[in-house]
Write a protein that binds this DNA or RNA. Structure first.
Length: 316
DNA sequence: ATGGTTTTTACTGCGTC
DNA sequence: GACGCGGTAAAAACCAT
């Protein structure tokens, strides 16, 4: 999403839209369907430039109709190297009416398929992308993160490729970093350790590449909030809802005091869960929380003491 | 490279079941 | 004696400069 200034030509077909321009605070945002842009008439700020309507090209007037009508063509996706746009030649040797074809046609179709595959992945960049996206796909399923993360990761990887950031770095490394970034961006954080576990490169490289990519692509992410790990860890540990609620409360109250800054989010979350266990008189061994959070008992100890001190509560 | 901070590793003593 | 917990010191990792 680039915010760029364009020349302020007014267009006949443009129509005024509701909403304030974030830049000059005037309600002069117009929608220009020809250019597919939303532009502020006052200062020329382009708010969005996404000319593609991803929705269906028909309108349904009742539920039944909605089910019956089908979309023409597949929706666009970022996670295929050609965005899923290319027409592919079916592998079946049947014509449009389902009849089989002559052997002459068979051979012709076979040659066409071969060439399609060659052309589709013709240059190094395309092949690079194809491999990277398949890797992202693999890691996404291994991590069990939802689909939007995959799309985001793909977009990040594309941008890295466009800006020539891959040179001198492994495709694997950049792909993994893109995924790690995407997880955080979509608020479904996975720790570096967890991402490393499904990747083919070591943690150091992923971390290094991540910082480089984030810097070059101007992706500024807030440090992960420890509370985002709580639900996942809690369900893995099989603790009561009370503990989970308490853990979130502890995190909220302590992060307000800035107690978490500079500390590892996973360790902090683990400690909060342990502390919550103490306060709720539900015994969760330090060992267990440390293991699920992929940290150590020492870290859990150090963090939970600080947390309890900070909120001025001691276990009964 | 360097120094400051945090995490990890490894070892230890204590109380309880 | 195994286990959970607490503390500590030293090593390793991390980060900003």
């Amino acid at each position: 999403m680039t915010r760029s200034i364009i020349d302020q030509t007014t267009n006949e077909s443009a129509e005024t839209e509701a909403g304030l321009c974030p830049d000059c605070d005037t309600a002069t945002i117009i929608h220009d369907p020809d250019r597919g842009e939303r532009v502020c008439e006052e200062c020329g700020l382009v708010l969005t430039e996404d000319p593609i309507d991803y929705g269906p090209e028909w309108r349904a007037f009742n539920a039944q109709e909605h089910d019956q009508l089908s979309r023409v063509g597949a929706p666009l996706t970022q996670s295929m190297h050609d965005r899923g746009l290319t027409t592919t030649i079916d592998w079946r040797n049947k014509d449009a009416n389902g009849r089989s074809m002559s052997s002459e046609k068979h051979g012709q179709l076979h040659r066409l398929r071969v060439w399609q595959e060659r052309i589709r992945t013709k240059n190094a960049g395309e092949r690079n992308l194809k491999y990277a996206l398949s890797e992202i796909d693999r890691m996404v399923s291994a991590l069990g993160v939802p689909k939007p993360v995959k799309e985001t990761a793909s977009v990040i990887y594309r941008r890295a490729l466009e800006q020539d950031l891959i040179r001198g770095r492994s495709i694997e490394g950049v792909a993994t970093s893109s995924l790690y970034t995407a997880c955080r961006k979509e608020d479904i954080p996975r720790s570096l350790e967890e991402v490393t576990a499904v990747s083919r490169v070591d943690q150091r490289e992923i971390g290094r590449t991540y910082r480089y990519i984030a810097d070059e692509l101007d992706i500024n992410l807030e440090p992960t909030n420890p509370r985002q790990f709580v639900p996942r860890f809690c369900s893995e540990l099989d603790v009561s809802k009370d503990v989970e609620t308490k853990a979130v409360e502890i995190i909220d109250r302590t992060t307000d005091q800035g107690l978490h800054s500079g500390k590892s989010p996973t360790g902090f979350a683990a400690a909060a869960i342990y502390a919550a266990g103490l306060l709720c008189e539900e015994t969760i061994p330090q060992r267990a929380v440390a293991d699920t959070a992929q940290t150590t008992v020492v870290t859990v100890r150090n963090r939970y003491r600080e947390q309890l001190d900070a909120i001025d509560q001691q276990p009964a």
